[in-house]
């Protein structure tokens, strides 16, 4: 029997990873550009957290986890705009480059090519005392990194929904001429949302890394793609994207919890959320097609 509160605890932890990345994906989607590199940027966030955290402490780790992916996203977008390169292809390049670069750097930073655990980089659970409260306890039992991730996600969502930048990004995605008429460089707006997107993905990677306190090659394991799916399934809206992320977080936590109670092999259980997500995408598309 799966404990409901334990399930919720896991689901919220997964959501702390998925939601920022999904909102980051939404940011560029607002500006009419698909950020295919969510996965790579998450990985960059996770690696930066571990690398800088190991050298300069957790705070530096979190700051680096936001700034490094943000810079990567900004530069890759700048490259695609200035060098006239397809942003889809550039994103694929980033997805290939980040894991390779991380694994090369890992040798120098952690002295190992594989898993590298660093003591003290696993975030604690500051309100663990309140976690025993039934159901709502799950809200308090999270790691501090997860709260930080939610905070950043909310901040990015606010920027998108309530600031001129958000409005301009939407305008850029709908009709770039509207920005030309306002005398705004649409490239600059795109650069800003890419940087924002990188920042959000970075913190989600950091939340992932600090939940285990170790660097594991390819630790994002396709979650960036799930985040991207959440953007589409959520109808490219904030609320919808968050709801879709919550659904997928629940699926992932079910798969994880199920390992404890069934004989089924872990890999098979882990594959289920991906298949289910794909089915949800198909069903969701068929509904919107009929509309």
């Amino acid at each position: 029997m799966i404990h409901l509160s334990a399930l919720l605890l896991d689901a919220i932890a997964f959501l702390a990873v998925l939601a920022p990345a999904a909102i980051g994906g939404l940011a560029t989607e607002y500006a009419g550009s698909l950020n295919i590199a969510l996965e790579g940027l998450m990985l960059a966030g996770a690696f930066s957290y571990m690398a800088f955290g190991a050298a300069f402490g957790t705070v530096a780790g979190f700051i680096a986890a936001m700034l490094v992916p943000s810079a990567i996203a900004y530069v890759s977008d700048l490259f695609s705009r200035k060098a006239n390169a397809d942003s889809f292809v550039v994103g694929l390049g980033v997805n290939m480059l980040v894991p390779a670069a991380a694994s090369m750097l890992s040798k120098y930073v952690f002295g190992s090519k594989g898993v590298a655990a660093v003591a003290g980089l696993q975030s604690g659970r500051p309100f663990a005392g309140a976690a025993s409260i039934p159901v709502v306890g799950a809200l308090f039992g999270q790691r501090s990194s997860d709260y930080l991730a939610f905070g950043v996600a909310i901040m990015v969502a606010l920027v998108l929904a309530r600031t001129p930048l958000g409005t301009r990004a939407k305008a850029a995605g709908m009709n770039r001429d509207a920005l030309t008429m306002a005398g705004i460089d649409s490239g600059g707006v795109r650069g800003a949302v890419y940087a924002l997107s990188g920042l959000a993905c970075g913190i989600s990677g950091a939340a992932l890394a600090s939940s285990v306190g170790a660097w594991v090659p390819n630790m994002s394991a396709g979650r960036g793609w799930i985040a991207l799916v959440a953007v589409y399934l959520g109808g490219k809206r904030l609320g919808g994207t968050f709801a879709a992320s919550a659904l997928f977080a629940l699926l992932l936590s079910l798969a994880t919890r199920a390992q404890a109670i069934t004989e089924a092999p872990a890999e098979l259980l882990l594959s289920l959320p991906y298949f289910l997500t794909a089915v949800v995408v198909v069903l969701g598309s068929s509904r919107s097609k009929r509309k």
Partner: peptide
Amino acid sequence: MGRRFAGAEVLLTSILVSQGFIFVIDW
């Protein structure tokens, strides 16, 4: 088939299904 019958984006479904099968084949 998702594309044919529901108009689902191949970009999204292909990567998800592929990732799922990678887990299954690994097992």
